[in-house]
Design a protein around this nucleic acid. Structure first.
Lengths: 333, 333
DNA sequence: AGGACTTATTAAAGGCGTTTAATAAGTTTT
DNA sequence: AAAACTTATTAAACGCCTTTAATAAGTCCT
């Protein structure tokens, strides 16, 4: 049923996880600050922190300046304690990044797209090499341009070798580290919230027109929307005109602005999100202004979301990294 | 920041809440069953249950049949221990229900709509009378046809006396019991999930065409969607044809079926919900079949949600009751 | 009907975080 | 420079849930 943090073991885990998150979030902290922030007693914070320091997971930074009394020791998370591997599989290339707990990139590279091959072999080989080279890699995040259900790639048009494969299970077994697999648009919208601090649990939409036709990633109340058949965000199919849906309108009409504005209006009337994001490679702020204006023809302007540009690839990568980081700090109970 | 159930007090609360929920959910239970289900030790379950029995909150039902050893005592929640009051304010009438923890109705009635009056006075008077008559009333749920933000009615077209009033705060102060205020469509969609056990955290949409124009309540991953300006679900504005949005299409065209089907298609392409509900007073299953068929013109049939009829008023009431119940069992720490 | 076996309940012991008191290490005042 | 005051850290006592052992209350087999 519910966890009901009551067994001593799960309590311990919760505290440890809390300390890790707080330390990464705040950059550094004293024992008193952690105790305060997490609502745990000082002696408990002290005990955990000492253990973590002994294990090399946190390091002392020296003494704080005094605020009138004895100076407090300040600690920070050791970012190199664990590393994460993020890989994204795009049509045109396969790129990877190795990052530490602070999100700093330790190594990155690209190779020809593994999607165009017939098997997973060369992909597995790449991963194998990277993990051997960096034994501190403790999590793996894989982004794919297709529908994902709990680590299973259930629909990825054009790439048979991935279809219906339990990628997460396979690589977790193989490498004995936790793996997360996520759809590209979902990862991107998640990644955007990491770097752009918004209100808590925002609702937002990432809208792209990419190579494989338009698609979107949707976050509602801070959660990724997946839908019953993982069809969420397939905005191509939204009926917009007497005889055209969104995809057709984009392709055939002379007026993509109106089609996009109608889509914004639909999103607004249905979800009323806080913000809608576009890739800055596909859109300009001038066009955004036109869209904003045009959208208010369909929906009262005060309810329209902010329309904003962002760096899709960076957001995507950040999303994968944050998923991997979450995984990393949730293990080693 | 986070709660991190670590202080003894909050732990106690969590256990108590868990026992209440489990007992109401299961109907009755033995100490061993509770201990198992909640992941708490037997002695703890025993201790809490004894206290609750002493307080009259649970009652012993006698001994279970033996399964080969000593017979266990079976307990159930005392449904009359607390009562809840649910009120809904509709354009045409104001109705109230007094219910116990099992959702059984103890008393109900209606009066002329308080929305048509100029002040809250007669509404307050009604509540006052009911609470005096039933001193065991321990929570109040109020449903309104307007936008609600944390107990504040922020937009309710036509009813000035409610606009921008902190209804929750006002009545909590006045009656010293917890109050929840919710929009009618949101309450209905919530209520539907109570009586129709679906998968956990479903995504579903309740679509009505009511007196005040069409509106919908949307649940994503089990959460009510509220939106940035509480405009969520205002589907009237969805652009659907060259020159008509959903509302206009419903009013002017000879083909409401197509308009509704297009809306279903939009919901599917954007949210891909598990199910879409209609009021059985506004829709027939024959029409639903037509809509289903027509929708698949716009979106691949396998991704379409189930279309179902339900009793809107009952769902609405159930939603309010469940909100009130949640409130009740979350207090008296 | 009495022993052997099951299962529920109660009692005692242990673990772990919290609270409270004591000590250490600074700063500011006189 | 020492007293007075602040704040951090450590130590001891406590509370509460858990684990383990002991007891109570049945059932089933012979």
């Amino acid at each position: 049923m519910k966890s009901l943090f009551t067994t001593p073991e799960s309590k311990k885990k919760a505290i440890l996880l809390g300390i890790r998150k707080a330390l990464l979030d705040m950059g550094s902290a004293t024992k008193a600050e952690l105790s305060e922030k997490l609502g745990i007693s000082f002696p408990t914070a002290s005990k955990f922190l000492s253990q973590m320091e002994k294990a090399g997971e946190v390091v002392a930074m020296g003494l704080d300046h005094s605020s009138g009394g004895r100076r407090a020791h300040r600690y920070r998370y050791n970012p190199e304690h664990m590393l994460g591997l993020a890989v994204f599989l795009e049509k045109t290339e396969t790129a990877y990044t190795i990052f530490n707990c602070l999100g700093e990139v330790k190594e990155q590279g690209t190779m020809a797209s593994v999607l165009s091959e017939n098997s997973l072999e060369s992909f597995t080989h790449l991963l194998e090499g990277l993990i051997e080279k960096h034994p501190k890699i403790n999590s793996m995040s894989i982004g794919v341009p297709g529908a994902v259900n709990q680590g299973n790639v259930i629909y990825i048009p054009g790439y048979r070798q991935f279809q219906n494969k339990d990628i997460k299970g396979y690589y977790e077994e193989r490498f004995s580290i936790p793996v997360v697999v996520e759809n590209d648009m979902n990862a991107a919208v998640l990644g955007y919230t990491i770097t752009n601090k918004m209100i808590d649990n925002p609702s937002l939409v990432y809208l792209c027109f990419g190579q494989n036709g338009p698609g979107s990633g949707i976050l509602i109340n801070g959660d990724v929307v997946r839908g019953s058949t993982f069809f969420t965000g397939e905005v191509s199919f939204v009926p917009q005109y007497d005889h055209h849906n969104f995809l057709q309108a984009l392709q055939n009409e002379g007026q993509p602005i109106d089609a996009i504005s109608r889509l914004i209006a639909s999103f607004t009337a249905i979800l009323n999100p806080h913000r809608i994001l576009f890739s800055q490679e596909e859109m300009t702020s001038a066009m955004l202004r036109d869209i904003q204006k045009r959208s208010s023809v369909y929906v009262p302007g005060e309810h329209l979301p902010e329309l904003a540009l962002s760096d899709w690839k960076r957001d995507y990568l950040n999303g994968l990294q944050s998923l991997g980081l979450e995984l990393m700090i949730s293990i080693h109970l």
